[in-house]
């Protein structure tokens, strides 16, 4: 009867560590397989541990920088737009960012190349634009979704607007905002493979190169690692959300 809340938390610790380990193990095994049992000489020359890891690192940096920047912009913007004074602006912003979302990701990448040039900067900028909407949208939905009677009670009891934001609105909206960040990050990890097209590197290099030289082992290596990365990222964020 008592304190059922405390008992639930303990068990998943093993699971929490196990799943990431399994994901890393799958990734390493396949990399090991491609390097040690290559299809042919071309694959053997192309792939090495250091190459795969530097591409993986590039990929992670691309995603981390763009997603973090998107969080830093979208969440405060979402908070700002849900303040009573600015309520009308929210829909306008959603439409603008929505329009950004309708442009194909490859086109966005290409567009920014003409402004920022080839490489890392353009890729990060494009991925950032792409991540803004899900986070902004979920921040708005999460905060406006707080029960209006909860808000009325909080106001009526004499909480000031800042306290209402930090103690009521954000904690209640947190799971929804996190869902937006998770969506953005996982989509971002997939989209980041396209960064290879504009010379920003990342796991997309493996997919494009593998495709160009027609070696399935390499294509699958790039695709598998980016998929595993997406699952891992989503899983870790879910863990963070519950903690």
């Amino acid at each position: 009867m008592t304190d059922s809340g405390n008992v639930k938390k303990r068990k998943p610790v093993i699971k929490a560590v196990l799943i990431p380990l399994v994901l890393i193990f799958i990734g390493l095994s396949y990399t090991f397989y491609v390097i040690n049992y290559p299809q042919d000489k071309i694959v053997a020359d192309f792939v090495s541990y250091s190459k795969v890891f530097s591409l993986l690192k590039q990929h992670i940096v691309l995603v981390l920088v763009s997603a973090t920047a998107a969080v830093l912009v979208s969440v405060p913007l979402g908070i700002f737009l849900t303040r009573p004074k600015f309520k009308g602006l929210a829909n306008i912003f959603i439409s603008i960012v929505n329009m950004g979302q309708t442009i194909p990701s490859l086109a966005i990448l290409a567009l920014f190349v003409s402004v920022l040039g080839i490489g890392f900067k353009s890729a990060v900028f494009a991925l950032w634009i792409y991540s803004l909407l899900p986070i902004l949208n979920n921040t708005l939905v999460g905060i406006t979704g707080v029960d209006r009677y909860v808000m009325e009670a909080a106001t009526g009891m004499g909480m000031n607007p800042v306290r209402i934001l930090t103690k009521i609105e954000l904690p209640i909206a947190f799971p929804v905002i996190m869902a937006g960040i998770r969506t953005a990050a996982t989509v971002n990890i997939g989209t980041a493979t396209l960064a290879a097209f504009i010379g920003a590197g990342g796991l997309g290099d493996l997919i494009i190169a593998g495709n160009n030289i027609n070696r399935w082992q390499i294509v699958i290596l790039g695709a598998l690692l980016s998929a595993l990365l997406a699952i891992l990222a989503d899983y870790l964020m879910a863990l963070f959300e519950k903690a």
Partner: peptide, 30 residues
């Protein structure tokens, strides 16, 4: 208004308990 409201108890039909807080935390609000 904020100071005024802290000295006036407020109960509404829909209660408006804070779902993310425990009962004790809810009561401890003011």
């Amino acid at each position: 208004p904020v100071d005024l409201r802290r000295n006036i108890g407020y109960v509404i039909q829909n209660i408006g308990l804070f779902p993310h807080m425990t009962i004790a935390e809810n009561i401890a609000t003011v």
